[in-house]
Design a binder for these strands. Sequence first.
DNA 1: TTTACTTATTATCGTAATGTATATATGTCA
DNA 2: TGACATATATACATTACGATAATAAGTAAA
Lengths: 244, 244
Amino acid sequence: MTDDEALDYDPNAYQRPSVAVDLVLLGIRGGEPAVLLVKRDAPPFAGRCALPGGFVGIDETLDAAAARVLRDKAGIATAHLEQLYTFGAVARDPRMRIISVAYLALLDEAAFAAALDDMPGLLAATITVPWPGETGGAVRIATPKGAVPLAFDHADIVALAMLRLRGKLDYSDVGFALLPERFTLRQLQDVHEAILGVTLNKPAFRRRMLDRGWLAATGEREGGTSFRPAELYRFHRPLINRPM
Amino acid sequence: MTDDEALDYDPNAYQRPSVAVDLVLLGIRGGEPAVLLVKRDAPPFAGRCALPGGFVGIDETLDAAAARVLRDKAGIATAHLEQLYTFGAVARDPRMRIISVAYLALLDEAAFAAALDDMPGLLAATITVPWPGETGGAVRIATPKGAVPLAFDHADIVALAMLRLRGKLDYSDVGFALLPERFTLRQLQDVHEAILGVTLNKPAFRRRMLDRGWLAATGEREGGTSFRPAELYRFHRPLINRPM
DNA sequence: TTTACTTATTATCGTAATGTATATATGTCA
DNA sequence: TGACATATATACATTACGATAATAAGTAAA
């Protein structure tokens, strides 16, 4: 890590910051990106919403801390979880120095709804991205009642999550983390359109996804439609990643 | 950030980890990616090489800490500096819990050589990437004398830096951070080939780069060649990013 | 002065990827 | 049985890209 001077390792030589993890629990609700928040009832920012988070234990990995918060605060046993960025502004928490490692958790629609139902403290807000492509910038976080101002720098964290997601969506497999195990091509396209904020060309999207080799047809079809049902696909990582 | 319970903010309620920054000082030397290292002379890992790093001050931003390490340990006033990832394995330092925020610093060939000359503690090692594309995995770090085993988990950090760099190279402007202010298209292609570990098609590369709109011809030409000199270009971010 | 040589730069062509429009298939429901 | 809505497949235009060849512009040697 760092210095060679023994002084640097004297536990009392430096004041140490606290380290926390904060989770962006992201899903698609009604065709729009949405995030799960907790309402704060103690200062600072009492009454405001915040991302679920918690301190990192002294004997706990960052990933383990994120998984624990996912379990304890959202009641979710497993989800796609990836480290996003570490926020270290000095006064991001007015009380004390807290460095926060932000994580992105992706939930499919059922998991999102289940968390919302099972955990009384959680509430859902819609994310609207006002910038095109991967420009970056602030996003609007709102419920049907209106805009939701977030505590701390959590709005920046959500904005960064959207930027990262847009960047990774079409070269990685993160899109599938937002879908149930079996899904139609239309559902997959809906997820991409919701994240990217654009409408995509259907045949071209279909071709690209099928050519990628990540989709396995199940032979089953969706039900409950009053029109021709679509084929259900399953995500499977190809064994040979890169044919060279 | 985190909990709503006031207990969470009692400074003595939790044992706090130390937080450090570690820098991957990366440049291209002789057509190969290279990294600047410091030799440790105290345990643990005495005699091994490590990334330059330092603890984050209680009143210091993460970015500021990275810039300070860049200045104090590498003698570099300014460079492209971006946060890479935060490493939080519990026993990554055998003495105490240290969470490290890794930064990637990109140096052009002159800055790399100057740092190596001016700071006696620094040494340069070549990075060899054995995996194709963005597969990921370990990299080989070596000097002409042989492989250089790194202290702590620093080899993982360097490997991640290469993975990140490969991913960002051709859709972002990071490649220009590895070049002097004025450069030829051949130099730009050399940088891309060194990072990606492949040989690229020259006319196609030229077309793509020019069409991107990031290159401004200076009208000047390189000197010192015994053949036709190439035009010198300058990087300039276009004012209109995305023609919609 | 001319020619050889080396690389820069431009042009040409074929192929693959993608956008767009249209046609056909398949289910429900009146 | 036919209207309807969407899935799926096909055809064609446009664009991006790889490969190769042709031309340009310097130095150095004959």
